[in-house]
């Protein structure tokens, strides 16, 4: 396991979250390990269905039937969140760990004013009188860059644009100055110019408040601009993790490489984009060996047969850079063809 520091705020080991459906067991998260440092932005990147959102919900202990956290340890500070009783979890949610979602407008209650929804956070977690709560709410709205916060506190969610609603969500998320903010595709539903505003805001707030952030997104551009540390997920597992610069400059896993090469980059004209053949595997019926093996071109190039037999471990093969791939790992009867 990669240790990029020893000051962990959150430490996840062997997390497995399965969904028991009519068609079989969906292994949405299937053995995930990572750490989040205080004040750090961890980017969790992957395509739809790779398990990044389920990982976030597992941390929040918000997995509902037919889903279940089957295995693993989620250490937040000194406690294992999986072992806490519900009351203690509720005390942590919205207070020490908070979460914001992709669709800000549907995450807000349509019949309560924005100011009252903010005040509710204080009502649950802080001992303040009404006047103090109102003042604090307005102050928060100002912090997240809402113009005319006194007036906007009286507005209903439908009277706000998507960007404004996401600012309100961030204000709610940060109301209690949490140690960890989980942002699940926070800008995916927004236009690029608004996305730039929101990302800017999140970065400023992190610098100011020292909140650690788990930023979940499918957009590699957002990851590159925001994250300090990146974990790439594929079919319920982390396939590569490293600091943001080495990950983009020297991606090791064939999937990471494929992803980076398959996106058009502004200002770089290529005649053709590289593409990854095929589709993401069925999470009910995963391939026997490496989950990526059926789509992997590098495996064919080097003629590796072990990939279809045994799923490799996520292994730190360079300082602070780990990858789950047989190209870089020796095993019995198998010699890694590449040295990083």
């Amino acid at each position: 396991m990669t240790e990029h520091s020893d000051q962990f705020l959150l430490k996840i080991r062997g997390l497995k979250t399965y969904f028991y459906t009519e068609d079989g067991v969906v292994k949405a998260v299937d053995g995930v390990d990572f750490n989040v440092n205080r004040g750090e932005i961890l980017g969790l990147v992957g395509e739809s269905g790779c398990g990044k959102s389920v990982t976030a919900l597992s941390i929040m202990q918000l997995i509902r039937k037919p889903g279940k956290i089957v295995e693993g340890k989620i250490s937040f500070g000194s406690v294992n969140l999986r072992e806490l009783p519900l009351e203690d979890i509720q005390e942590i949610r919205g207070n020490r760990i908070s979460m914001i979602f992709q669709q800000p407008q549907t995450s807000l209650n349509p019949v309560i004013t924005v100011g009252d929804q903010l005040a509710e956070v204080f009502e649950i977690h802080a001992d303040l009188n009404n006047e103090e709560m109102r003042e604090k709410s307005v102050e928060l709205l100002r912090t997240v860059g809402i113009a005319d916060p006194e007036q906007k506190a009286l507005a209903y969610p439908h009277e706000m644009s998507g960007g404004q609603a996401q600012r309100v969500m961030i204000a709610m998320g940060l109301a209690m100055r949490p140690e960890l903010l989980i942002a699940d595709e926070p800008t995916t539903a927004l236009d690029v110019t608004i996305q730039a505003q929101i990302l800017d805001l999140m970065r400023d707030l992190r610098n100011e408040l020292g909140t650690a952030v788990i930023l979940i997104t499918h957009d590699l551009g957002v990851i590159a601009e925001m994250a300090d540390w990146v974990a790439v997920m594929y079919a319920g597992q982390i396939v590569e993790q490293a600091g943001v610069v080495p990950l983009f400059d020297k991606p090791l896993h064939p999937y990471t490489r494929g992803l980076i090469n398959s996106i058009p980059v502004l200002g770089e004209t290529k005649h053709r984009l590289a593409d990854i053949d095929g589709v993401v595997p069925n999470l009910v019926d995963l391939p026997k060996g490496c989950n990526f093996a059926p789509r992997c071109k590098a495996r064919k190039k080097y003629g590796l047969s072990i990939c279809e037999e045994i799923n490799p471990d996520l292994k730190e093969i360079m300082p602070n850079h780990s990858v789950r791939c047989w190209l870089y790992q020796d095993a019995e009867d198998h010699k890694a063809p590449l040295k990083p």
């Binding site: 068609d23 739809s48 269905g49 589709v279 993401v280 595997p281 069925n282 999470l283 009910v284 019926d285």
Partner: peptide
């Protein structure tokens, strides 16, 4: 969430 369909 189209994967299952593909395997089908």
């Amino acid at each position: 969430m189209p994967r299952k369909a593909d395997v089908k």
